[in-house]
Amino acid sequence: MRAVMEKNVTGMDELLAGYAAGTLSYPAQALVGAHLELSGRNRTYVSSLEALAATGLADSAPVALSDRDGVLDAILSSELPMNDNRSSADQVSEGTDNVPQSLRAIVGTSMESLPWRSLLPGVKECKFGEIDGCASSLLWVRAGRAMPSHTHHGTELTLVLKGGFRDEDGHFVAGDVSYADSDVDHKPVADEGEDCICFAVTAGRLQLTGPVGRWFDPFLR
């Protein structure tokens, strides 16, 4: 695990910087957001980068709004919605339906009720289509089973949401991000004792140079 993090530390630091700047592809942004929710490892670094990016806002030259009075009036006279502030934070619960907030716009709130498709005995998948040239999917692997060998074209980021898996790069548990190149032949095996659920973001085949370049050029738009 440690070796993996160090091996990919360059890519990971840039990925995190891209998250702080808000310049990643949408699914990669969501994956990093979920990583930060599940693991404390990079929170300080990202918070600091956000504070740095925010100094750009504080120092930015003001540009007057076209209708300052109208906008202010509309906001101050609007009805305040009751009780909606803490509700989403309170929804965090135990179990398989504990979808990180950052992934809810893609995955929804319930993993159980998704249209899962069986790939192999003990392995199912749910695809969410492509946004920004990056495809995202959930993979649910029963405890102790091997995941299907990866057939993706291009780079893939995998975030463990639940359980854990082991491959030739090491052991990955909830909150860990694994990075795989197309030429890496992965044979991950889910840990015994608990099903493993992962969120994966893969660069689309057609825009191989775009999204891949984007992940490791996080500032590229």
């Binding site: 969501a30 957001g33 930060l36 929710e37 989403s88 907030q101 950052s102 809810r104 716009a105 893609i106 995955v107 929804g108 709130t109 998704l114 249209p115 749910c126 969410f128 289509g129 946004i131 995202s136």
Partner: peptide
């Protein structure tokens, strides 16, 4: 399913 109108939360 990715089009559900859930706002991106402020993690």
């Amino acid at each position: 399913p990715s089009l559900q109108p859930t706002p991106l939360p402020d993690v």
